[in-house]
């Protein structure tokens, strides 16, 4: 009888293999695919930063408009891209479920981790570029920035876990969710400080947990940035926790139907 591996051993081996595979797959498209992989989000970010940060030059007290837009987008994308990647994770990995070691959750976690690394790389390049043209890109409170980003990522992971089950079980429900996701960009305070919104709409926007993460990111960068006192990272963290819990519950409940479909 051969030595049998423990469950955590198998889990980590599988996660490792999946991350390497995912990374290889992303850059396997051609000679320049690694370039496009980073260029695509960077181009998007750069366009918006140029458009709203430099050209419009809206005055936001205590901030640098270019950085203001950049971190708003980075925070939002960390959530949205992770959620999207995790959402389509099941159908993209169907071929792998013929190995009993590979569980659905493994593939989703690996995808979320790869997306996080990509997002950090992208942000690093963007900030390096901003620094080169003389902007001050050093955050006032780096720990708060990293913490807020981490919570945004966890929220994306939780949301993705739920979406992956919902969209696999019902294509129609998946489309409805896509429809709801679209305006999320505009009600998350990516482009504007939340204080610039009049009441009672401000309080309505504050119900959106993403607003709290993005505002908190800005606090991490600009010591004199002002936002409503009700901004609270733990509100977003609670949402993240709840969504991960529900997501895991759904994964467990429907684990058999996710793969056989």
């Amino acid at each position: 009888m051969k030595r049998t591996r423990s469950s955590p051993e198998i889990f980590f081996a599988v996660i490792r293999a999946l991350i390497l595979r995912e990374a290889a797959l992303r850059i396997a498209g051609g000679r320049l695919s690694w370039f496009w992989l980073l260029m695509e989000p960077i181009a998007h970010l750069a366009l918006f930063v140029a458009l709203f940060g430099f050209i419009l030059q809206r005055l936001i007290p205590g901030t640098d408009p270019a950085i203001f837009i950049a971190i708003g987008l980075i925070g939002y994308f960390t959530f949205q891209r992770t959620a999207t990647q995790v959402k389509v994770g099941i159908s993209a990995n169907l071929a792998l479920f013929s190995y009993r070691q590979v569980k659905v959750l493994d593939t989703l976690l690996a995808r979320a981790l790869v997306e996080l690394v990509l997002m950090l790389l992208t942000s690093g390049i963007l900030f390096a570029a901003l620094a080169m043209i003389g902007r001050n890109v050093i955050p006032d409170n780096p720990l708060l920035v990293l913490g807020s980003l981490a919570v945004m990522w966890l929220t994306g992971l939780g949301f993705g876990l739920i979406l992956s089950v919902v969209s696999t079980l019902s294509e129609d429900a998946g489309k409805v969710v896509d429809l709801i996701m679209r305006p999320l960009y505009f009600v998350s305070g990516v482009m504007y400080p939340i204080l610039s919104i009049q009441q009672p709409y401000r309080d309505m926007l504050l119900l959106n947990p993403l607003v709290h993460g993005i505002e908190m990111l800005r606090h991490g960068f600009f010591p004199r940035y002002s936002s409503p006192p009700s901004i609270d990272l733990s509100y977003l963290a609670l949402w993240a926790l709840a969504m991960i819990f529900v997501g895991l519950l759904l994964q467990r409940r429907f684990s058999q139907r996710l793969v056989t479909l």
Binding site: R16, L25, Y99
Partner: peptide
């Protein structure tokens, strides 16, 4: 079988490596 187990966009070597990694 042919239902799965191989990822079309990856090379034979990459597929083999993946299986090695999850098995040992």
């Amino acid at each position: 079988g042919f239902a799965g187990g191989l990822q079309g966009t990856m090379t034979g070597r990459q597929n083999a490596k993946f299986v090695c990694r999850i098995h040992g």
